[in-house]
Design a protein around this nucleic acid. Structure first.
Length: 892
RNA sequence: GGGCGGGUAGCUCAGUCGGGAGAGCACUGGCCUUACAAGCCAGGGGUCACAGGUUCGAUCCCUGUUCCGCCUACCA
């Protein structure tokens, strides 16, 4: 790429697309399978095929991209598998809405045509998120893209289903499940969201049957759902409840239905709740279902699949649940059966897809037995074969896994993996098989009905880490990349997805699907509220990427990713990091301007002549590399970003670049000297770009491509070797010297600022009176830095210097600073300024003396700590006396 | 009901071994200093939620209280 002068302001739009295309062209996203190298792999949490990029995706994929880019630079065989999820209910909803717009529904189309329509939709609109992830810079191996409904993954699903069925882990049966009347399908327990709602507790009188006839006596039951009474088949009381236990075995008359139902005794009933009498509706309540099984009560389903009342509801047939509740309540009151209605707040289950109130209903479904699958998965986490990060999620994981319940895996929708079961109409045998069954395996009859239900989408997701790699076939991918190294996900799908992958991975591969799981937080708005369309506080990552640049957004998200914390995203932060991108840009601009006459040469290290600044920055860079490495290794993303931010801006730009201006602008500098500093400059800049690259891929590539470098270099920063920490470059002496210089420069600048001296004004002379000979030596040796960084014409550096008359003074840990400003200074103001310093020093001194005067402290604290305090005391005492003496002499 | 996380500067948050409280943003003052005003220099600002305890010493460890958030659960 030709050299060019950089613009003053970084323009992300101008380069992002260009570099992404360049990377694709170069094939650098493709997984290498080089047998000499270690492997690193991640499978993406597959976004819904209907999805578009939201801020959570942006975070999730930025973190994955950071790890993958980092490992790729470290030389691993790196694979990041991308793919999408067929999202059964969500996708079906989308296509159904499209049909509705044309006045059609899926029943009119028929199953086959409908499925064809979904595939068409997927072809046209199913790759939105793919394009958006590319905009985000994601370095997935796009050639290995998978879809949960594609041929290979479908085969994996069937294989798993068939084996689990054969082993008796999958069974079919009539049980109570969570039914969504809007989606017209069963849901798993996890797909129900409970929310507190204001409701009512209806107290209803159930007349007792005495001597075969309705009596005036009654039991009162309390319920939040009076409409379900139409399906009541018993009333239960606690057998120890002396108010009622005499009635056990008797009957009550069910109001409105004129049905006699038994009174049973069951310890499930809490005598303290409500009236102590519980109406039992086995077909519409999960607990009642259990009670019903214990007493062989009939199950009366009173609703249709859309939650309108069915013929069992008698006169209420055809009403919706809500209408029926009103009517029942009204009729009870009319009949004198309603004791009272109380306000009552309780949790109501809603469909996680469409928010419709769930109707617990008995129906014929398929289930996966979980207990046996859970145990090895619990052990795997306990034994750290799968490491959850942060580890406090383990508690949540164990709690759920230990109380796991069977998983309802069948869905009454059309879009999804059809359950591979065929019912023989001749002998009743259920045929479950990998391939389509055309003749009954038991009676050879050809009279078969295929199962119409499909599987829960999460069933196929559970196989994702190995199904995407070609399992059940033996593939090179499986050999190289399974188990995967890391999974990056959000905690809200820990049970939905992570736990199930561990269980099925262990079951079918005998190995965990991933070694580590990094669980990140939710992105909230600046006030910490969950983002939602209804609140209107959604931050659209794509808009922000356009406004501030993709790198700025990525850096922001990374900086805010501290473990165990939610992320509160304030747009101000994005702006701030956009500014950081610009800072990087301008530092590069400065560097390139000063590297125009530079070309890399082979030169022995000992022939070079480095400045103190050069030696120091190389040393500081080593510390940065070490910090970045350890932060990444421990997934402290915020520390990783923070270390880079601090080093680049506040060490490299603020100090190093300012210091080397001296040499770069010095016409007296020899070629070797100039070359040495230029070499340091380009080295540090390049290594910073490499360290930054995983977070900010675009700007780092844009600048990197323009750096002068040796021949035979690689094509992209993406495949440049990751910087290596070099112990030999650590130079504590240089670091200490720079610290001293920074300290003195700071003190002089502070004085200037407090006196309101214009930065443009060059102070003719400054005196430094320093007690320590080493400090004097350092400052004398590097006086040039002081002169340029403090805008001072001349220094007098010595010890015990007398304060020139009419001088401003300051005292710091090294000694005294005098600015001779005869005639300019305001004595009153100066006394005030010094007095303030005196007060501060006194306060600190009191604290230290408090400690040292405490005999227990001197006796029990470690010697090092005590010595430290003693040293501090003497320093403060000396500072105080100097300050006081300066006030004393102020008028001289 | 059970569990988890949190309460540190005006805001959002760091704080790894218990030993002089930090960052970013915001704010104040001064500067268009030949990379950058999306910038430079300097500065102000905190009873580390509250109460006890352990310790020579607690933001940090222990106990309790309180507030906020989340997860989970078969009290109708």
């Amino acid at each position: 790429m030709a050299k060019q002068t950089l613009e003053k302001v970084y323009d992300p739009q101008a380069c992002e697309k260009r570099w992404y295309e360049f990377w694709e062209q170069q094939g650098v996203f493709r997984a290498a399978m080089n047998s000499g190298k270690p492997s690193y792999s991640i499978v993406i949490p597959p976004p819904n095929v209907t999805g578009s990029l939201h801020i959570g995706h942006a975070l999730n994929n930025t973190l994955q991209d950071i790890m993958v880019r980092h490992k790729r630079m470290q030389g691993y065989n790196t694979l990041w598998i991308f793919g999408t999820d067929h999202a059964g209910i969500a996708t079906q909803n989308v296509v159904e809405r499209q049909l509705a717009a044309q006045g059609l529904n899926r029943q009119q189309l028929g199953r086959e045509d409908f499925i064809r329509r979904v595939w068409e939709w997927r072809k046209e609109s199913g790759n939105i998120i793919t394009k958006q992830l590319k905009l985000l810079g994601a370095s997935c191996d796009w050639e290995r893209e998978r879809f949960t409904m594609d041929e290979g993954l479908s085969r994996a699903v069937r294989q798993v289903f068939a084996r689990l069925y054969q082993e008796g882990l999958i069974y079919r049966g009539n049980y109570i499940v969570n039914w969504c009347p809007r989606c017209a399908t069963a849901l798993s327990d996890l797909e129900v969201e409970f929310e507190e709602r204001n409701g009512h507790l209806y107290h209803i009188r159930y007349p007792l049957i005495i001597a075969g006839a309705e009596s005036q006596e009654y039991l009162i039951v309390a319920t939040t759902r009076p409409e379900t009474m139409l399906g009541d088949t018993a009333v239960a009381v606690n057998p120890d409840d002396e108010r009622y236990n005499k009635w056990i075995g008797q009957k009550v008359l069910l109001p409105l239905c004129q049905r006699e139902i038994p009174i049973i005794g069951d310890s499930y009933v809490d005598p303290a709740f409500g009236t102590g009498c519980l109406k039992v509706t086995p077909a519409h309540d999960a607990n009642d279902f259990e009670i019903g099984k214990r007493y062989q009560l009939p199950q009366v389903v009173v609703m249709n699949i859309d939650a309108t009342m069915n013929k069992e509801a008698g006169v209420y047939q055809g009403l919706t649940r809500e209408e029926c509740r009103k009517k029942v309540s009204h009729d009870l009151e009319q009949g004198g059966y309603l004791e009272k209605i109380e306000d009552y707040r309780h949790a109501v289950g809603h469909c996680y897809r469409c928010k419709t109130v769930i109707e617990p209903t008995v129906s014929q479904q398929w289930f996966l037995r979980m207990k046996d699958l859970a145990q090895p998965a619990i052990d795997a986490v306990r034994e750290k074969k799968v490491q959850l990060i942060p580890s406090h999620w383990e508690a949540t994981y164990f709690d759920w896994m230990l109380n796991i319940r069977d998983w309802c895996i069948s869905r009454q929708i059309w879009w999804g993996h059809r359950i591979p079961a065929w019912y023989c109409k001749d002998c009743g045998h259920i045929n479950v098989h990998l391939e389509d069954v055309t003749a009954c395996q038991k009676c050879a009859g050809k009279n078969l009905d295929a199962e119409t239900d499909v599987l829960d989408t999460w069933f196929s997701s559970a196989l994702w880490p190995f199904s995407t790699m070609g399992w059940p076939d033996k593939t090179k991918e499986m050999e190289f990349f399974y188990p995967t190294s890391l999974l990056v996900t959000s905690f809200d799908i820990l049970f939905f997805w992570v736990a199930r992958m561990i269980m099925l991975g262990l079951k079918f591969r005998g190995q965990v699907p991933f070694h580590q799981v990094y669980i990140h937080a939710l992105v909230r708005d600046a006030e910490g509220r969950k983002m939602s369309k209804s609140k209107g506080n959604v931050v659209d990552p794509l808009t922000k990427m356009e406004e501030y640049g993709t790198d700025a957004l990525r850096f922001t998200l990374t900086s805010l990713t501290a473990q165990g914390r939610d992320i509160c995203l304030d747009e101000k932060r994005i702006e701030g990091y956009r500014n950081f991108m610009n800072k990087i840009w301008n530092a590069a601009r400065f560097s390139l301007l000063n590297l125009e006459d530079f070309s890399c040469q082979d030169m022995a290290n000992n022939a070079l002549e480095f400045t103190l600044a050069d030696v120091w920055i190389l040393s500081a860079l080593q510390r940065l590399i070490a910090d970045a490495d350890s932060a990444l290794a421990e997934y402290r993303f915020n520390d990783y970003a923070g270390a880079l931010y601090h080093f680049f801006w506040h060490e490299f730009c603020d100090w190093y670049l300012e210091m080397i201006k001296l040499r770069l602008n010095d016409p007296q500098a020899t070629k070797i000297q100039r070359y040495s500093t230029q070499l340091t400059l380009v080295t540090v800049l390049e290594q910073c770009l490499c360290l930054l690259h995983p977070i900010v891929p675009f700007i780092s590539e844009e600048i990197w491509q323009q750096l002068p470098r040796k021949n035979g270099h690689v094509a992209s920063i993406m495949i440049t070797p990751w910087p290596k920490f070099e112990e030999r470059l650590i130079n504590k002496e240089a670091e200490a010297r720079i610290d001293t210089i920074k300290e003195v420069v700071g003190a002089i600048r502070n004085l200037r600022a407090e006196l309101n001296l214009s930065p443009a004004m060059v102070l003719p002379k400054v005196l430094l009176s320093l007690g320590n000979i080493k400090v004097r030596e350092i400052l004398r040796a590097h006086e040039a830095y002081l002169r340029s960084l403090c805008k001072v014409g001349q220094f007098e550096i010595g010890t015990g210097l007398t304060r020139p008359s009419g001088s401003i003074s300051a005292v710091d840990q090294y000694g005294e600073i005098f600015l001779p400003l005869a005639g300019v200074m305001d004595i009153g103001q100066e006394i005030q300024r010094l007095q303030k310093a005196v007060n501060q020093t006194k306060e600190e001194l009191e604290k230290v003396e408090g400690k040292l005067n405490n005999p227990a402290f001197v006796e029990k604290a470690p010697a090092v700590v005590v010595e430290k305090e003693q040293l501090r005391r003497s320093e403060l005492q000396e500072k105080l006396s100097k300050l006081l003496s300066n006030i004393d002499k102020i008028r001289l």
